[in-house]
Nucleic acid binder design. Structure first.
Ligand SMILES: [Mn+2]
Ligand SMILES: [Mn+2]
Ligand SMILES: [Zn+2]
Ligand SMILES: [Zn+2]
Lengths: 142, 142
DNA sequence: GCCCAAATTTGGAATTATTCTAATTCGGGT
DNA sequence: ACCCGAATTAGAATAATTCCAAATTTGGGC
């Protein structure tokens, strides 16, 4: 059993045949490997072209199917900025996203330790949050 | 000079001919009035049909043009949830959005007083934030 | 008021990320 | 090896948004 969390160059072969209750098919394995291989935030198309390098027969529809399966089983995160195409993130730890307006690149931003959402927002009590997305845009000082 | 902030039934006629440096054309006035008339978060299409009630000749392209003009001049906020179509918000005060998963409706959520972003996030120093979007999903307790 | 250039509006076509469809292939269990 | 439900595939469909080029409206100068 491997730790997917911080492996540098994951070998798809090493993934168990099931993760989080999701059957690891050849294609899902490949898509997951592609995402885990880099610390960036590729679009579905990026994932598609990277996956094609090692599996030339994979289809874009399959990449979308795999991404949706991986996201719903919480093996990767989906990241949205305004109306841009979705991106996919290998980092499962609690974090949010900052887009550098100059390069368009997306960076992970970690929450300070011990901060709770209720400390920040006037939420009507009883509210249950199932999903939270924080997205920042800006630049790194002049 | 009127206060747009909390007017209940704004009369487009009352808007000055220029706001925030934006020329108030008939159509922009109408689109703005539609958005200010309710405290909800209509889509471009919602705005289009509401605007058509009083201005039957307005076109969807124009609604999109007007929305983009109003948003960029900060007379209206644009709100995004995942890949759903954009919504538009009349509330210019500092707040974020909660979507009730049962009804799909979007509610404004106010920030607690005195909380600063830097208190929450490990931002590399020097970072300048030009845009921030916080979106929550969930439900109101069982 | 009239004229002009510039800005805006308009209908329709184009774009494009994503989803859908229906047919084919795959794979684990027998 | 055979079966059956699940997964993959190519291609068509969808839908929000943007683009385009023509028509209209606008404000400013005369
Ligand atoms: Mn998300
Ligand atoms: Mn926004
Ligand atoms: Zn990330
Ligand atoms: Zn709002």
């Amino acid at each position: 059993m491997i730790s997917l969390e911080q492996q540098k160059n994951p070998n798809p072969e090493d993934f168990p045949s099931e993760l989080q209750g999701l059957r690891m098919t050849k294609q899902r394995r490949e898509v997951l490997a592609v995402i885990l291989a880099e610390r960036d935030h590729p679009t579905a198309n990026d994932v598609f072209s990277r996956a094609q390098d090692r599996m030339s027969t994979i289809s874009l529809a399959t990449v979308y199917n795999c991404l949706e399966a991986l996201v719903s089983h919480k093996l990767v995160r989906q990241v949205n900025f305004e109306r841009e195409s979705s991106r996919y993130c290998p980092n499962l730890s609690d974090h949010c996203h900052f887009q550098d307006e100059e390069s368009g690149k997306i960076h992970d931003v970690v929450f300070k330790e011990g901060v709770k959402l209720e400390d920040l927002l006037e939420l009507p009590q009883g509210t249950e949050i199932s999903h939270l997305e924080i997205s920042l845009k800006g630049n790194f000082g002049k």
